[in-house]
């Protein structure tokens, strides 16, 4: 596995519009992640799911704050949220 963007077809920034919410159901991180994965990852699908959901060394930031402060997968995504995945892999 290389840097995280390589899993997402080499693209660094993705603007994702989530399907509109017909009912007042809230989007949870997990759904968004799965949506992102389906939408953006063309190759190495399994690896990517492992990398992001089980995240051995991938940090997740929501609006620049550590997602551990936001309830991780239970966080409810708001409009215009900015989600960043940072790989902690060795570049040494």
């Amino acid at each position: 596995m290389k840097c995280a963007e390589l899993l997402f077809s080499g693209q660094k920034v993705h603007h994702v519009t989530l399907p509109s919410q017909s009912e007042p159901c809230e989007y949870h991180q997990k759904k968004v992640l799965l949506f992102l994965l389906e939408k953006c990852i063309k190759t190495k699908f399994k690896q990517a799911i492992n990398a992001v959901l089980l995240r051995p060394g991938i940090l997740v930031l929501i609006n620049d704050a550590d997602w551990e402060l936001m309830g991780e997968l239970d966080y409810q995504i708001q409009d215009k949220d900015n989600i960043v995945f940072i790989s902690t892999l060795h570049g040494g």
Partner: peptide, 17 residues
């Protein structure tokens, strides 16, 4: 270390060998 580099916007290279 990663968050320090990210918040400080340090210029680093992050590909695995």
């Amino acid at each position: 270390i990663v968050l320090y580099a990210y918040f400080k916007k340090l210029d680093y290279f992050s590909t695995e060998c």
